[in-house]
Amino acid sequence: MTQNGKQTLSALVENKPGVLNRVVSMLRRRNFNVDSLTVGRTANPFVSRMTIVVDQTRGSGKRIASNLFKLVNVIDVKVISDELHVSRDLALIKVRSDDAESRNALTLICERFPARIIDIGPAVAIVEITAQEDIVEAMIKELEPIGIVEMVRTGVVAMGRGVRIMEADDYRPAVEAIKEDSGSYQVYGV
């Protein structure tokens, strides 16, 4: 399941200030090489989910998982690349489109990838692709000869297939719950 010597981990973390800092600080301190790290909310507003892609050469996924597990704010960790999973990376790629040739090439490439043109003008166009990371890489390669002007990527998000469920539905922090009762609760960003 491992692609290009990389490992993908999923972590459920408490949605509190400073948690992202703790995770990143640990990865830096242990000298793990992070390829991408994404974070966002889950169905439970008290819980966020991180997807971390690391370069496997610096430490096995298991070692990173056990170090993540030690962080008090980390509720659950899985090395998701060790099992069946799906992963997606989203990229916005601004490409030169100032002649007919480049526009044609762009249209043809987008037909062969899960991509579409979401903005186009006389000078440049923006292409959106959502796919597995290696497919995004492949498309970028094809766009390069046309002329990539700028690019932004979200980093990988991943999820185990089938019933490999990571969820912390009933997680409620003791202290935050009190705040909610007293009507002063607010959800913190990580």
Binding site: M26, R29, A174, V175
Partner: peptide, 24 residues
């Protein structure tokens, strides 16, 4: 100091509400 001590503590807290204090 919470930022400084993240790598050298098992865990740390910056108290943001007095009601948290006994729990923390």
């Amino acid at each position: 100091i919470t930022g400084i001590t993240i790598p050298v503590t098992k865990h740390n807290y910056l108290v943001s509400d007095v009601r948290e204090l006994p729990y923390i």
